[in-house]
Structures are given as C-alpha cells and as structure tokens.
C-alpha cells in the first residue's frame, strides 16, 4: 500500500535532479528549470505530509479528517514560484540585452 516513504523517495530524487541542474547548467534558463524542479519536490513533500499526518479537528464548522495546512503551504509555494519565474525571466531578458547571451559565466560585471 502507498505510504509516506514512497512520496518522500520520489521528492528526494526530484530534488537531487534539480540541484544537479542548478550546479551543472551554464544557461540561465537551465538553472531556472532546476529551481522549478526543487520547488516542485518541496511541494510533493508538503502535500504528502499533509495527507499522512492526521489531526482530526473542525475547521470553521467543516469536519476535516486530515490537516490541510500542508496544502495551503503548497499553494503559497506555487504563488511564489510564479513570482520568481516572472522576475527571473525579466532578469534573463535584461542579461541578454546587456551581454548578448544568457550564459551565466559571461555576466561578470555589474554594469554591462
């Protein structure tokens, strides 16, 4: 049967792959892809923990067999991932306009 271990295993693997992308990619968009993978792994963990730990209680009159706090946290992570992607792509486009490429090793000065 499905246990918490399965989901933690999956998210550990995805997290490690994200770290590998952040470390080994030179392309700024590749680094951003790695960050998205890392955030996604964290989200899998949040949702899995919220599913597998039980706090029977009432939330505003609605009977709740399990805590939903983990899912709320996952929603905030998704919101912040959207913010981060928008800002990062704006910076990447600026980088391209300034240096003519998005290889992160070539951006070595504060002003182009």
């Amino acid at each position: 049967m499905l246990t918490l271990y399965h989901f933690l295993l999956l998210s550990a693997i995805v997290f490690a792959l994200g770290i590998a992308a952040v470390v080994s990619r030179k392309n700024a968009v590749g680094v951003l892809i790695g960050i998205e993978l890392i955030l996604n792994a964290a989200n899998i963990n949040f949702v899995a923990f919220s599913r597998f730990t039980e706090h029977p209680k009432l939330i505003a009159g609605l009977a709740q067999p399990a805590a939903l706090e983990g899912q709320v946290f996952a929603i905030f992570v998704i919101i912040l991932a959207a913010c981060e992607a928008a800002i990062a792509l704006a910076i990447i486009i600026n980088l391209f306009n300034t240096f003519g490429s998005i290889e992160i090793d070539e951006a070595q000065t504060m002003r182009g």
Binding site: M1, L2, T3, L4, Y5, L8, R51, F52, T53, E54, P65, A66
Partner: peptide
C-alpha cells in the same frame, strides 16, 4: 520513523 496512518 514517519507517521504512517492515512488511507481514509
């Protein structure tokens, strides 16, 4: 050792 109740 993680909590393992769920299934409902």
């Amino acid at each position: 050792s993680w909590p393992e109740q769920s299934a409902q």
